[in-house]
Design a protein around this nucleic acid. Structure first.
Length: 558
RNA sequence: GCGCCCAUAGCUCAGUUGGAUAGAGUGACGGACUACGAAUCCGUAGGUCGCAGGUUCGAAUCCUGCUGGGCGCGCCA
């Protein structure tokens, strides 16, 4: 709709240029937006104001010139008004809006699907938790965010691949092995010393028990036993992580192991390529990459003087490898505490000629958990943290996802477990789901009376005349462009707000009928009832599609 | 000390990339079910958009400087 309006405006401007009504200049950036004040029409543009300086005329004069010469050949518009300091406000004819409603009901679960991202191939890397412990709240937030973003991207025509990078090389897996082995030994020898910086959670003991059931660790040398515990522990934790994610409705296309990266020649090859470009040098027995001058504030060590590669080395290799796999864009979702790594990763990429925009890093701020009015402080070191699994058990997947997706990922999130646990109106997820269930309930009621959602509703604009009814369609018409914007701004939380608003429109509309029976959806007039059922089906469709993109169920009953 | 993020109603947060009178939820108070689901709706109250400048037709939004909070600045992982 916005595009059609834009086309009318551009045709008009061209015409004004040709006729000398406006002096021919370049067209500045302008917007066509949906005003927040309904009195300002369905759409408004600031075009006259942006033209004012190059035209050297008053915005109001320009607005009048545009209005008087408007080329609305398809008769899209109901009214055109000049307002304020130089806005033009437009109203679209009801028939046009009703046409959109018909489209929605016709294409159903595909409404909103578009090809904005065609030709793009995006790799989204998220969660990427170390397999040294269970997923906790913070991982959950990243999982919900990444998953929903991927769903939206692919709905908008992007080729999307979801990847989980497994940090399974080096010290931390070793430490996992030592921690597990220690717990095993402590079964017989309670004084056996626990490794410094080891993992304290109860799950370590569970791992020790499970592993010792499968193999007799006493048959192995201590070193072999630790390695065995590390390998086995990694495998089991990864399995658990996969189970949790799958239950959280998050699927990955690829699991990329850092260990494999070390085993393959990739790390060496990558370093060789960087060396050829002249970005590597040796100093104090270590190998450095020259990232300073490429946006980083100092150079970074890639191989320590003890011969071990740093994690940063594999990070570079991994990201360059993503690039070589032919992705046109990469998105990483990291915890905000890693933000300091962005400049050095980008610097390393640009050393290989990869542009800055290729990689977008989304940072998620931390999650604070509240229960009983108190903040629950979490510490992985001390083993006191709430796992994603516990949270799903407690409050359910729908509620957890909704809360995570409600807020901008750049804002810290307070997760009030008591509030989310409550199965009543205080819980925000039910508001949207209830609207869906309520519509389904109306359909059941109508069917019982022999009235169904019509396949061909006829001339809707004759029957859908209430302002509330047309407001629905206008809101629904914005769904596809909202999704496209989310793909650019990477802000999935806007979908959550959109759905809440749409549900609010519906609840308000529904309640009109409790006062005035003529405003009920099911009325004595069959044709009117069918038109309203058709409208309700449109609303239901958009809510269902939106919830599906959020990974949240759209229940028919609650 | 340097860098990134944040600051909007009592609380938790939106704010359509610079638009017209800054909005929800929650909490407080008052209303609406003998017909489509009250997990809902309506009303009242609540604001110097952290502070001070600047940019322009126009600023919560952009720029600069402060204040306050979170995080990060290793040959750690």
């Amino acid at each position: 709709m916005k595009n059609r309006l834009d086309a009318i405006l551009m045709t008009t401007i061209d015409y004004c240029f040709d006729q000398g009504i406006l002096s021919e200049t370049s067209i500045p950036e302008y917007v066509i937006e949906i005003p927040n004040n309904p009195a300002h029409g369905h759409f408004a543009t600031n075009l006259p104001m942006t033209l004012a300086s190059s035209q050297r005329r008053r915005p109001l004069d320009i607005a009048k010139a545009i209005k008087d010469n408007l080329k609305d050949e398809e008769e899209l518009l109901e009214s055109v008004d000049i307002a304020g300091p130089g806005f033009i406000n437009f109203k679209i004819r009801a028939e046009e809006w009703c046409g959109i409603l018909s489209d929605i009901v016709r294409v159903k679960e595909n409404y909103g699907r578009n090809d904005a991202g065609s030709g793009e191939k995006v790799l989204v890397e998220f969660v990427s938790a170390n397999p040294t412990g269970p997923l906790h709240l913070g991982h959950g937030r990243g999982a919900a965010l990444g998953d929903t973003l991927c769903r939206i991207l692919s709905f908008c025509g992007y080729g999307v691949e979801r990847e989980f990078y497994i940090n399974d090389a080096g010290e931390q897996i070793r430490l996992l092995g030592e921690s597990v082995f220690c717990r095993f030994r402590q079964i017989y020898d309670p004084d056996y010393p626990f490794p410094k910086n080891g993992y304290h959670g109860d799950y370590i003991l569970d791992l020790a028990r499970a592993i010792s059931r499968e193999a007799d660790l006493n048959d192995l040398s201590q070193e072999d036993a630790i390695i065995y515990c590390a390998q086995k522990g990694r495998e089991m934790m990864l399995e658990e992580i996969k189970e949790d994610l799958s239950r959280f409705r998050v699927a990955f296309d690829g699991w990329y192991s850092e260990m494999d990266l070390h085993r393959s020649a990739l790390l060496q090859d990558t370093l060789g390529a960087i060396k050829e470009k002249g970005y590597l040098y040796e100093k104090d027995g270590a190998l450095w990459i020259k990232t300073s001058g490429l946006g980083d504030d100092k150079d970074r060590v890639i191989r320590k003087s003890d011969g071990q590669f740093t994690y940063f080395a594999s990070d570079i290799a991994y990201h360059l490898q993503k690039y070589e796999r032919g992705f046109t864009k990469a998105i990483d979702i990291w915890g905000a505490d890693h933000h300091g790594y962005i400049p050095r990763i980008k610097a390393s990429l640009s050393a290989q000629g990869v542009s800055d925009e290729w990689l977008s890093v989304m940072l998620i701020q931390l999650v604070k958990l509240w229960a009983g009015g108190q903040e629950i402080r979490m510490s992985k070191r001390a083993g006191t943290f709430v796992t994603l699994r516990e949270l799903m058990d407690d409050v359910g997947v729908d509620a957890v996802r909704f809360v995570f997706l409600m807020k901008n990922h750049e804002s810290p999130l307070d997760f009030d477990i008591d509030l989310v646990k409550k199965e009543d109106s205080d819980n925000p997820v039910y508001y949207v789901q209830y609207a869906h269930a309520r519509i389904c309930s109306i359909f059941r009621k109508a069917e019982a009376e022999g009235v169904f959602v019509p396949d061909n509703p006829g001339d809707l604009s004759k029957h859908l005349v209430l302002e509330e009814e047309l407001a629905f369609i206008r809101a629904m018409a914005g769904f596809p462009s909202l999704l496209k914007e989310i793909c650019v701004t990477l802000e999935p939380h806007r979908l959550t707000y959109y759905l809440t608003d749409l549900a609010a429109l519906f609840h308000r509309y529904f309640n009109l009928g409790t006062k005035i029976s003529d405003h009920r959806i099911i009325t004595g007039d069959k044709v009117l009832t069918q038109a309203r059922l058709f409208l309700a089906e449109g609303v239901r469709t958009v809510i269902a599609n939106g919830l599906n993109l959020l990974g949240i169920e759209a229940p028919e009953k609650m």
